[in-house]
């Protein structure tokens, strides 16, 4: 089995999807803290936000590939015929679509980090920057929790 085949395998794709999402969530939580405490340099905030955006894009690509290639054919039928068909109909359907909100929202926060600290204060944006960074992280956590429910529904669907 080649490296590309390993990367494209189901467990690795799920791991990449989740792992990159965790990096994205952590980056925006860290950024929230930087905005709150006025900590770190502008450059470090830009790097943190850029890393968060890049991680969410990587999570999107890995999760999207898994979803399109494997989920519909292999996982969805198990969930739909299992004990919790609502896990696909409600949770997965909501998850896959609200994920599309994350990148534009995260990009906007990245652009806020381009402001100099004195401009952030003058424009009175600190509070909104904290809320928006928190919103990116909260959306990521919400999507992560939904992913856990979907995985559990697939496991229990397979057992029953």
């Amino acid at each position: 089995m080649g490296v590309l085949e390993i990367i494209q395998s189901k467990p690795v794709l799920i791991g990449l999807h989740l792992g990159f999402a965790i990096i994205g969530i952590d980056a925006f939580l860290w950024l929230l803290w930087k905005f709150k405490d006025d900590g770190g340099s502008r450059k470090s905030s830009i790097v943190t936000a850029s890393a968060g955006v890049a991680a969410f894009i990587a999570s999107w690509l890995a999760g999207g590939y898994y979803y399109v290639v494997y989920y519909g054919a292999l996982v969805k039928p198990i969930i739909k015929s299992g004990v919790a068909p609502w896990a696909h109909n409600i949770i997965m359907e909501t998850k896959e679509h609200i994920f599309l909100f994350v990148i534009p929202l995260a990009m906007t926060v990245l652009f806020i980090t381009l402001l100099k600290k004195e401009d952030l204060e003058r424009l009175k944006l600190r509070r909104l920057a904290i809320w928006l960074s928190g919103a990116v992280a909260a959306l990521g956590l919400f999507i992560g929790a939904m992913g856990f429910v979907i995985s559990a529904a697939a496991r229990w669907g397979a057992i029953n």
């Binding site: 909100f101 929202l105 906007t108 944006l125 909104l128 928006l132 919103a135 959306l139």
Partner: peptide
């Protein structure tokens, strides 16, 4: 500020 406030509201509303 209004644009960022709206973005926050629309994210919550869309979800």
């Amino acid at each position: 500020k209004r644009a960022l406030g709206f973005l926050l509201a629309f994210t919550a509303l869309g979800t």
